[in-house]
Design a protein around this nucleic acid. Structure first.
Length: 159
DNA sequence: CGGGTTTGACCAGCGC
DNA sequence: GCGCTGGTCAAACCCG
């Protein structure tokens, strides 16, 4: 997996049914919403890192949570969307000078993940991929972003 | 001292 | 089957 199927700004066909944002719409802190895409059939490789080994004990289902990728134009990688994230990994991506960072929501019982990655072609673009839906209110309500995340909730609830 | 970050290792999936 | 690559773990480290 090299690139997420994110719709590019050049494609005029992308239009989120719920998030009525156009590519030129700006979000609170000057960020630009450029695209959104969900992905349903992500192969689940649930890391059952049991050393003693239960290789074929539990059969986790193969479908991961839907993922939502969108781009923002920002100088900084870390988008403060109101949730508390803990970084749990960083990997260098091929064909990309910039590493990809993996974050996880620190709320109890909330296993929402996100990964942040900068585009090698345009380092001013930051791609943030959310995986899962928050099942709790926002920690730090952040004007517009709360709305957007709430709408993302709605958007994902019919899958 | 507690919570978050860094970083190398590990593992599984996939392509060749 | 092997090697590459992405995703995750976890111990060490850092910082308020």
């Amino acid at each position: 997996m090299e690139n997420y199927p994110i719709l590019f700004p050049s494609s005029t066909s992308f239009h989120s049914p719920r998030l009525a944002l156009s590519p030129s719409d700006t979000i609170s802190n000057g960020q630009v919403f450029l695209g959104l895409q969900d992905e349903n059939n992500v192969p689940a490789s649930h890391a059952s890192r049991e050393k003693e080994g239960n290789p074929s004990k539990k059969k986790e289902k193969k479908v991961r949570k839907p993922r939502y990728a969108f781009r923002t134009r920002s100088q900084i990688d870390i988008l403060d969307d109101g949730f508390r994230w803990r970084k749990y990994g960083q990997k260098a991506v091929k064909n990309n000078r910039f590493p990809r960072s993996y974050y996880r929501c620190t709320h109890q019982g909330c296993d929402v993940k996100k990964q942040v990655q900068r585009l090698s072609m345009d380092e001013t673009i930051v791609v943030t991929t959310y995986e899962g839906v928050h099942s709790h209110p926002v920690d730090k309500p952040n004007d517009n972003f709360e709305d957007i995340l709430n709408q993302m909730k709605i958007y994902s609830s019919f899958q």
